[in-house]
């Protein structure tokens, strides 16, 4: 990539006034660092990525409403977590956390456990228990 080929496209970084730095070749064949506002190819895959995550959140919400999963699954997706990450945050084994994703298990969880989940998700106990969507 030549210095004048460094992409200066619109990007999420640009909207935060961040430039990223890349290395490119100048006219004399020397490598120099150049600032870039972003690259369209990258922005495209980032948006694709977020779209898939949004679909997962929507799907989780539908599943909660249909009574297939507990609100924990919805908030897990909302926080872009997977089971392992969530388990690490609440300090429990993945096996148990997955069980808490079942509505009939969730229903019988004690306040202490629920509070843990609520803290991790940064919401109140009430928000966690009364997710109506």
């Amino acid at each position: 990539m030549k210095k004048n080929e460094v992409p200066q496209d619109d990007s999420p970084l640009k909207r935060k006034n961040i430039n990223e730095m890349v290395y490119a070749v100048d006219d004399d064949g020397k490598f120099v660092s150049v600032q870039s506002t972003g690259w369209e190819a990258k922005t495209v895959v980032q948006h694709e990525n977020l779209e898939v995550l949004d679909q997962r959140i929507q799907q989780a919400l539908n599943d909660v409403k249909a009574g297939n999963v507990s609100p924990i699954v919805y908030f897990m997706e909302l926080n872009r977590m997977d089971w392992q990450t969530l388990a690490a945050y609440v300090g429990k084994w993945t096996f148990f956390v997955k069980r808490h994703g079942k509505p009939n298990v969730f229903k019988n969880l004690n306040t202490k456990t629920l509070q843990k989940y609520a803290d991790v998700f940064g919401i109140s106990l009430n928000d966690l228990q009364n997710l109506k969507g």
């Binding site: 190819a41 895959v45 980032q46 990525n49």
Partner: peptide
């Protein structure tokens, strides 16, 4: 597949 590819490109080109 597209999701996996998108992730691969993110790993490749993201900060």
């Amino acid at each position: 597949t597209n999701y996996n590819l998108a992730n691969m490109i993110r790993m490749q080109e993201e900060i």
